Simulated scan of single mutants.
Amino acid sequence: MSKLLKAYDRSRVPLYIQVASVLRTRIQSGQWGAGEKISTLEELEREFEVARVTVRQAVDILREEGLLQARQGLGTFVSKKTQDRHWVKLATSWSTLIDSLTGNVPRRLTIEEDVPPPNLTSSEGELASSYVKLRSVQYRNEDPYSVVNILLAREVFDLNPTRFKNAAALVTIDSMEEVTLLEAQQTLTIGSADPEIADLLKISIGAPTVAAHCVVVDDGGIAIYVGDIIYRSESIKLQMDLLATNPVREKKARNGYKAVELARRSKARKA
């Protein structure tokens, strides 16, 4: 058995989805340029050591996504209009996160009240008395790129329910004079789409996703925001400034994110 076949066996994801993932990466990385003719089905069949039907299924997925176009009698070509799909730059600081969300309008928003509380770790603050669940899908033009599930402390939601229904929750929290934040942490996990997520994001079941888990704690130690956002992996770009050295104490305080106060309270806690 070849190394390639052994690699297939290590995954529970169907073969055609695995092949489609590799082809998608070639397009998004620029290995296959816009308008370029891709390898033939025969060539892909030999390269990936899979059946012709598997290659055809993989190519069909990318055609449905608009990444490939078939031309009668000529072959299959990379689409000229869908190159860089990495339109979401994941934030690595509070200010860049808020800036990236400003202007976002939730679509297909649902609100549930009196929902079960989130499961918090010891470093994620204390539970609020009750939570409201906000669920939405975010779009770029008409392309869905993330599913958002948020548990928001009821007392925070009640400060401005209308704003939370019409703007990104973190942007709304950031604008509130009544709220002072102590901590905000985000964890990223690579995963794959289950049937529900695949339907909402218009991707294949098992397609790669990026899950962001974000917890925001106020100055009372309460987890007022617990968000789980699942992104289409091809929409994500993570860029970090490795030499960014601005300490929190030098940052300008802003309405919700009162950085000076945050530094003072954090220092007092440690003392």
Results as ranks from 00 to 15, higher is better:
Leu5Asn: 10
Lys6Gln: 13
Lys6Tyr: 10
Lys6Leu: 13
Ala7Tyr: 14
Asp9Ser: 14
Asp9Met: 13
Ser11Lys: 07
Arg12Gly: 12
Leu15Ala: 08
Tyr16Ile: 07
Tyr16Asn: 10
Val19His: 14
Leu23Thr: 03
Arg24Ala: 07
Thr25Phe: 04
Ser29Lys: 10
Gln31Thr: 11
Trp32Ala: 15
Ala34Thr: 09
Ser39Leu: 10
Thr40Val: 03
Glu43His: 09
Leu44Met: 12
Leu44Gly: 13
Glu47Lys: 15
Glu47Asn: 04
Glu47Trp: 00
Phe48Lys: 08
Glu49Thr: 14
Val50Phe: 14
Val53Lys: 15
Thr54Gln: 03
Gln57Ser: 13
Gln57Trp: 05
Val59Thr: 10
Arg63Val: 11
Gly66Val: 13
Leu67Ser: 04
Leu67Tyr: 13
Leu68Met: 07
Ala70Trp: 00
Gly75Tyr: 14
Gly75Glu: 11
Gln83Ser: 11
Asp84Ile: 12
Arg85Asn: 15
Val88Arg: 14
Lys89Asp: 05
Trp94Thr: 11
Ser95Gln: 12
Thr96Arg: 04
Leu97Pro: 06
Leu97His: 03
Asp99Thr: 01
Ser100Glu: 07
Asn104Trp: 15
Pro106Ile: 00
Pro106Phe: 05
Pro106Val: 05
Arg107Met: 06
Leu109Lys: 07
Ile111Val: 14
Glu112Asp: 13
Glu112Lys: 04
Pro117Phe: 07
Pro117Cys: 04
Pro117Leu: 06
Pro118Phe: 04
Asn119Trp: 01
Ser122Glu: 13
Ser122His: 07
Glu124Asn: 06
Gly125Thr: 04
Ala128Tyr: 09
Lys133Leu: 14
Ser136Trp: 11
Val137Ile: 09
Gln138Asn: 13
Tyr139His: 07
Asn141His: 12
Asp143Phe: 14
Pro144Met: 10
Tyr145His: 13
Leu152Gly: 07
Ala153Arg: 01
Ala153Asp: 00
Glu155Ala: 11
Val156Asp: 00
Val156Arg: 06
Asp158Lys: 08
Pro161Phe: 09
Pro161Glu: 09
Thr162Leu: 10
Thr162Ile: 09
Phe164His: 03
Lys165Glu: 15
Ala168Cys: 01
Ala168Ser: 12
Ala169Pro: 00
Glu178His: 08
Glu178Arg: 14
Glu178Ala: 12
Leu181Asp: 03
Leu181Met: 08
Ala184Gln: 10
Gln185Tyr: 09
Ile190Lys: 13
Gly191Lys: 06
Asp194His: 02
Pro195Cys: 11
Ile197Ser: 11
Ala198Lys: 05
Asp199Ile: 04
Asp199Leu: 10
Leu200Tyr: 09
Leu201Gln: 06
Leu201Trp: 10
Lys202Pro: 01
Lys202Trp: 05
Cys214Ile: 03
Asp219Asn: 12
Gly221Phe: 03
Asp228Ser: 02
Asp228Glu: 06
Ile230Ser: 00
Ser233His: 05
Ser235Asn: 15
Ile236Pro: 00
Ile236Ala: 07
Lys237Glu: 14
Met240Asn: 15
Leu242Ala: 03
Leu242Trp: 02
Leu243Lys: 09
Asn246Thr: 12
Pro247Trp: 11
Lys251Gly: 09
Ala253Arg: 02
Ala253Thr: 12
Arg254Lys: 15
Arg254Val: 08
Asn255Trp: 02
Tyr257Ile: 07
Lys258Leu: 05
Glu261Met: 06
Glu261Phe: 01
Arg264Tyr: 06
Ser266Met: 05
Ser266Tyr: 03
Ala268Met: 05
Lys270Asp: 07
Ala271Cys: 00
